[in-house]
Design a protein around this nucleic acid. Sequence first.
DNA 1: CTAGGGTTAG
Length: 604
Amino acid sequence: MEPGLLRSLLPTNLAHLLKTRPLHALLSDASTSRAARHLFDAVPHPTAALCSAFLSGLSKLSLHLELIEAHLLAALQGAPASRPGCFPLVLKSCALSQRRARAGRRIATPLVRGMLGDVFVQTALVDFYAKNGDMVSAVKVFEEMPVKDPIPMNCLITGYSKSGDVEKARRLFDGMPRRTSASWNSMIACYAHGGEFHEALALFDRMLSEGASPNDITITTVFSICAKTGDIDTGRRARALIGERDLQNMIVHTALMEMYVKCRAIDEARQEFDQMPRRDVVAWSTMIAGYAQNGRPHESLELFERMKATNCKPNEVTLVGVLSACAQLGSDELGEQIGNYVESQRLPLTSYLGSALIDMYIKCGHVGRARNVFTRMEQKVVISWNSMIRGLALNGFADDAITLYEKMVSDGVQPNEITFVALLTACTHAGLVDKGMAFFEEMKKKHHVSPQVEHCACIVDLLCKSGRLWEAYKFICDMKVEPNAVIWSTLLSACRTHADVELAKLAAGKLLALEPDNSSIYVLLSNIYADAGLWGDVREIRDLMRSKNVQKLSAYSWIELDGEVHKFLVQDTYHPRSAEIYSAVDGLGLQLDQTNPDPELISE
DNA sequence: CTAGGGTTAG
């Protein structure tokens, strides 16, 4: 079409636009689908190239369903939308919008026969089949291609990665005549996907030593692997490449932040966050959740307040992080406030958001609100049930927890390890020995969940609480998993309550083998001896402690200031609010440590 | 104007 003719057909504002950039560029880079549609509809007889440009615009906006529809419509109206150039876009949209796999197949099948000459269509077909997990068809199309181009091979590697076929991916990778950065990236991601992080990083090293060019995507993948393995050294090495090769972008920085977060280098994560020129919702969410995960809820909430002052809107992920921070503070007032804020956002109550809300309400003491959230959740997955059962258990509603568990099973939801920890916790808190033992058996036999140390700890606690100490001891000896310190100290504590010196010696011995420097074991044992009037043994323990140079540790205390719970130790100079805690303790008329008249506070 | 690889949560 003549440019002059087109201009005369367009409304004046569009004609003005066209003076600055060609129509196909405007279509391809449109900022909204409305803008693209507006332009495209103004063209009376669009050329094939303009159809491609229009679809490309929708593709860049990730409007996959709209793209498929537009393509069908254009084809029906006789526009040349069936030129080869349009199909890669349509297939890509079909592959990316999962619900359109069948539509994609309807388009793909005739293409396999009709347009095998076009490399772009063939590549799009390989990608489409690979993304749908149909590797047989993907390989078939690929084998018909005349040249072994790296792009379709990368698609195949990614496809094998999705279906867990790391071996086949590697064979393909090894046989590539030419590799691009994406080939390495796909193969590294493939190992990472299969949990073979060591292999993935080894390949990254080989990539560097062979002189291939790592790009922004390579280091993003590497950061994400280092985050999962806690390998901060490799992460730092990859970080050096950002500056060397100018691989800056938002995703790279966010992945790097996440790496620091998971390696517990939270201040370095914050440094990275502060240096970012722009921050999207993922960057904010990563940092907010990062503080929460590293036990720094105040900074998490502080950052959330700062985020609200920007024009970056918090999403579900952000709020899950915020709720987790709020749960850690355990303040009923703040819990109510944040809870109201989150619920006022009118976001759909997904399993993620629902569980985070339940956890938060439970920890802040709003059991009723937690129950209310649970009732409103439409899609309840195992984790949702687990959150609610655990919440009820921790708040002493053992019967409700058990009823909920029974409802879960009758609803056909398969309970997992966590469910039984929650359920057994409920029995422990209520002292329901027989029920607890029965659930333990049900867990193994009916639900095929093998007991972990946490489950066994519940049973030991249960038996100990009802005074069946030797039965608990026998249970520990018969356990399939190695008993840990928690289990032995449960037994040891019970030995004091029930004045069982003989068993106390056994338990303390096992415990000291696991934790030789834990002074509380000596203290407890010495108390048990003292209770029984065995002063000789008490002295022996004291001498032993002195000879082993074991320090007596102070106990933790908790105190609430302004609705927040602070944990502190005697001799603390570190706690940010030590002075206030001090005066609050003073106000209670309590003595922190009688041997030390001027105790300082130590923060956790 | 058409094909490949990457980041956040319970």
